[in-house]
Design a protein around this nucleic acid. Sequence first.
DNA 1: AGCAAAAAGTTGACGGTGACAACTTTACTC
DNA 2: GAGTAAAGTTGTCACCGTCAACTTTTTGCT
Lengths: 197, 197
Amino acid sequence: MSRKYHHGDLRRALVAAGLEILREEGLAALSLRACAARAGVSHAAPRNHFDGVSGLISALRAEGFRRHTAAMRAGMASEPHDRRHIGALRGYVGFAMEQPDLYRLMFAHPMPGVSDDELEIAAGGSFEVLMDISEGLDWPKSGDVPCNVNTWMMLWSFAHGIADLTIGGQFGKCEAALGYMPDLEQVFPGFGYAGPR
Amino acid sequence: MSRKYHHGDLRRALVAAGLEILREEGLAALSLRACAARAGVSHAAPRNHFDGVSGLISALRAEGFRRHTAAMRAGMASEPHDRRHIGALRGYVGFAMEQPDLYRLMFAHPMPGVSDDELEIAAGGSFEVLMDISEGLDWPKSGDVPCNVNTWMMLWSFAHGIADLTIGGQFGKCEAALGYMPDLEQVFPGFGYAGPR
DNA sequence: AGCAAAAAGTTGACGGTGACAACTTTACTC
DNA sequence: GAGTAAAGTTGTCACCGTCAACTTTTTGCT
């Protein structure tokens, strides 16, 4: 028999199926049963690998954050050092626009009481990139706020705002009125590179 | 009979029930049948007033935008004129933190092909406030970008980013590390009032 | 006033979904 | 090789959105 009773790597297959569904059919079509069907497995099989649908979603979010981190790192590498934050932001927004449903899922409400080490670590990767590019940026610090909290909160809020509003189609009326979409650097020329500390 | 066969204002009652559910039980608990039950009506009654669940959601989003607009206008009124943008931003973020599930719903993906005049008008109200407070703000304009597109895109992205990341608990690690949450003005001191044009 | 039609609400059914229980098949270990 | 744990299957239940068929009330027309 070519078809084994045991799948061999069903967990990975289910995550891959989930990513496909998010890409091709959107968040509304994501379900445990649909993933199971894509993996060629019965509807209850996923329960051996995930703690219900929230477990599957945690795994998808973790994979999303890993790819998100990679997209930002790639963007950083594509720019000279004093413009690496621009590259990272482009990577950030580009990822969100390419995989809007996955991005939305990543930043959805955390279910109360649900904690997942894999997810924590993966999300920490994206967090770290934002910390990295905050270093050396010239953004006003006020008062006694330690480190560069202001800078990365600003960066992150800006990046997430642009990404999420774009995904949600909220800039549509702007684009319709202007005939084009302002570039990221046009909208936000406020960051300047101040050199390494 | 004290109980009329016809409800009288079922549409309004269903929207109110939906808002209650979003507040008390969260987005996951929102359903047509749950709203119908809260309104004391059979499970199929809502179909006479909404085009399925997407119609109910459109109505909830519209009501959300109206309240969102009101929150920003109230914030504006609570500050002197040269700080009205700060007040509006506080109103923006405050609304999102008070009604996180409603805010998320408002800015969720628009279903393709779904258009709703009531929703468009309501969302336009929030849009207009952001346009208003952009006027007179001193934010660098670059190149030939007309009006103050840069300023309001920046403002909106910032406000949405702060609000949505806060709702999503993403600043939790920051708050845990610092022991407190940086204030909106600390994070974003970049806007200055430049007086009326 | 009376009647027809439209509006509003009810009941019942269907398929899809998450969750769970009971069972079967495979793999691992001693 | 036997026993056990892991992995997958089938069946069931409750909940959901949607639709169809039906009932009750309101409205509007002559």
